[in-house]
Amino acid sequence: MNFESKLTKGEFCIPECIKCKKIVWPPSEFCNSCFGDVVLKEGPFMGKILEFSSQNQQNFCLVEFENTIRIMAKILKKPKLGQAVKISKCGISDGSYFFEVI
């Protein structure tokens, strides 16, 4: 099962190269370093908020996982810089990924 199939089911996985162990992001079938095959590591994973802002009382933040993967995500409570978070919701809607963290 690939990254998007997992994401569609609400599961956020981290793609990692079998050969060189590099985390592959954005998700791909192949490693962008050695072109090795990729496996999906299953979570949950803890991330760290790097930056945030808000729109119409809805907070959004930039979160980093495993010192490599960064995503933009919703967060319900007022975020703090460096705050540890995990993904509470994720999926694909109209072709776009979505993420929410707590």
């Binding site: 954005p26 776009s96 993420f99």
Partner: peptide, 13 residues
């Protein structure tokens, strides 16, 4: 293409 932006794809984000 840039799905790492999640639903926040507009340049204002």
């Amino acid at each position: 293409w840039d799905n790492s932006r999640g639903e926040f794809k507009h340049p204002i984000f």
